[in-house]
Design a protein around this nucleic acid. Structure first.
Ligand code: FES
Ligand code: FES
Lengths: 143, 143
DNA sequence: TTAAAATAAGACAAAATTGTCCTGATATAA
DNA sequence: TTATATCAGGACAATTTTGTCTTATTTTAA
């Protein structure tokens, strides 16, 4: 469903949200990649993308790190689109140039509503909700 | 969402269903790859997988080709699982070894219902439904 | 001022996915 | 029997995605 980069991005964002709720300190790459069990250098690349998309703010130098740009009020849809673009949620599921009512692919009408619901769920899930689940030990960053 | 192979597989199956509804003749790779606009040799590979999964029956030699194994009563979920396996519909969305209630990833509870609905839609959509749409010029194999 | 701790960025490498080509096997019609 | 049209399958190639390494830059504390 999601690319590996997108999977990591979601974990990154939720982990930072969770950390900031506890201490409000910046979080560095090393702590992130350990917490979510991801390759460090690759994680750093994804962090750069999240900064470019304005979902994160980075601070260089000693005691630097990453923090949320809009404290907690960022949803999963924003994260997914920042990393994987609009293909998953707006593009044609069978690879047509564009998803359209005028030239629908063979699954268009059948899967339209399911994708709408997925989109709604993604939009309705912000970092606050997930950070809460993590605090309640009802969701985890790694196995 | 789906792999390229899976995208082609869906088009392949729906095209064969559509052709058989019209003429009940076997369909060959060349006709398929032209109709769905896919690379011929790659399409042949996917056809072999669909035969191995018992969704299609192949006939070698002159006037050979492919036909549905269970006339029309094959659904999208079967096709997707034949090609992409159980990862998309049953695996963890964030790459954990398994999707589980006991060790849920950070999106597990949030996206569970959306995925259930997707699964239902896929199971409820069989080739008959799509072939009908195609006949009514309400769905297409290529742009 | 210097050392240390952090991000930024580009080049490179490995792995997975997608796609091609060639040869062999099989069935049918003439 | 032979030519032809078809699927089967393996080796290979190209592309994309994932992941690594190295060096530069920035910031702060001592
Ligand atoms: S999903 Fe294919 S055209 Fe809309
Ligand atoms: S989707 Fe990740 S554990 Fe269920």
């Amino acid at each position: 469903m999601f690319s590996k980069r997108c999977e990591y991005a979601i974990k990154i964002m939720t982990f930072i949200a969770h950390q900031q709720k506890k201490s409000n300190k910046k979080v560095d790459v090393d702590a992130i990649s350990k917490a979510i069990d991801s390759p460090k250098a690759f994680t750093a690349k994804i962090l750069q993308d999240l900064v470019k998309s304005d979902l994160l703010v980075s601070t260089r130098g000693r005691f630097g790190g990453f923090s949320l740009s809009a404290q907690i009020d960022i949803n999963l849809k924003q994260i997914i689109e920042a990393i994987d673009g609009h293909k998953l949620l707006e593009g044609c599921l069978l690879g047509f140039g564009a998803c359209s009512e005028k030239n629908p692919c063979v699954v268009h009408h059948q899967l339209k509503s399911a994708r709408e619901i997925l989109k709604l769920k993604l939009r309705d899930t912000n970092l606050e909700i997930i950070a809460k689940r993590v605090n309640e030990k009802n969701a985890y960053f790694k196995e």
